[in-house]
Simulated scan of single mutants.
Amino acid sequence: MLDNIIYAWPELLKAIGETFYMLVLTIPIAVAIGTPLGTVLFLTRPGSFLKAPRFYVILNGIVNLIRSFPFLILMIAIIPFTRLIVGTALGTTAATVPMIINAVPYFARFIEQILLEVNRGVVEAAESMGANKFQIVWKVLYTEARSGIANSITIVTVSFLSYSTVAGLVGGGGIGDFAIRYGYYRYQTDVMFVTIIIMVLFVQIFQFTGNLIVRKLDKRL
């Protein structure tokens, strides 16, 4: 048992590095694009600041459409697009393309819901003091929702850690690819067991760190 783990350890470390590489690319881009996208969804929804019902219906439909795709099917469906963007449909970098496409609307929906939960009285107070829409969004909504945004980033990170393992099914590398090669093809359950433990530890670390940041940002606590 120990011999198998020692033999596979270098490849396991490489797989962990590939998984983190996917997350480091996916999560920041998802936050950078998903935050303004979710904000636009919030601002244009019926009864909000901007009156653009048709635009909201179209944008809301696009977000729902992308989110409705199972991740594995999405990876396969956009292979031509992935090849166009990164030059190949295989490898760790290629796997980040469908991950980003899936993560952006996922995070945008989180942002929309978080902004909806902001106390309307705080927004009205800012309006009464002459704040424009940009100031309300940047200095009021985002400030009030910062703990919720941090919590959403944590949830998305944990979720896409598991999504990254699916990338191994189509040659995306990472822990998923490692698990398939050693746990499925070679039936080395001991190596698989160690892999599962490592994944659980990573989830716990991400969640603990996220909860700690949320507690520091949440002024109610």
Rank of each mutant, 00 (worst) to 15 (best):
L41Q: 00
I5W: 07
A108S: 11
I114P: 02
I76A: 12
F71Q: 02
V194A: 09
W138C: 09
I213N: 00
L116V: 06
M129A: 12
L12Y: 08
A179L: 15
A131T: 14
Q188L: 13
I198A: 10
P105A: 05
I33D: 11
M192L: 15
E112K: 02
L115P: 01
S147H: 12
K219R: 15
I29A: 11
P105T: 02
E127I: 10
S159H: 08
T195L: 11
L201M: 09
G121K: 04
K14V: 10
T44A: 06
L116E: 14
A52S: 06
S162L: 06
L59G: 00
T88P: 02
R186W: 11
F202C: 09
L13M: 13
E124S: 00
V118L: 09
E11I: 01
T93M: 13
P28C: 01
I76T: 05
K139D: 13
M99N: 03
A8Q: 03
T154R: 03
F20M: 08
L212K: 13
N64M: 09
M1I: 07
T209H: 02
W138Q: 15
N4Q: 13
M1P: 07
K216C: 10
G47H: 06
F69P: 00
K51D: 14
N102A: 15
V63W: 13
F20Y: 10
P98K: 04
Y182E: 11
Y142G: 04
I180C: 03
F42K: 01
A108F: 06
I149A: 00
N211S: 13
V31R: 00
R220Y: 12
N132F: 10
S48W: 07
I79V: 15
I111L: 02
R109N: 14
V191I: 09
R220T: 15
R220L: 05
Y185S: 07
L212N: 13
R45V: 03
L141Y: 11
I33Y: 11
A145E: 09
G172W: 08
I101T: 07
A145Q: 07
R186K: 14
R83A: 14
D3N: 09
F134M: 15
L25W: 14
A108C: 05
L65C: 11
G87P: 04
L141E: 13
I205M: 13
P46L: 10
S152D: 12
T165Y: 12
E11P: 00
V166T: 11
A15M: 03
E18H: 05
I197S: 04
I66F: 03
M1K: 13
P53V: 05
V191Q: 03
S48I: 10
N102K: 14
I73F: 01
G61A: 15
G47A: 11
M129K: 08
F55H: 03
G34S: 02
Y184N: 08
V123I: 15
G38V: 07
V40N: 01
N151P: 04
E11Y: 14
A150Y: 04
V63L: 12
R54T: 12
A89H: 00
G171E: 07
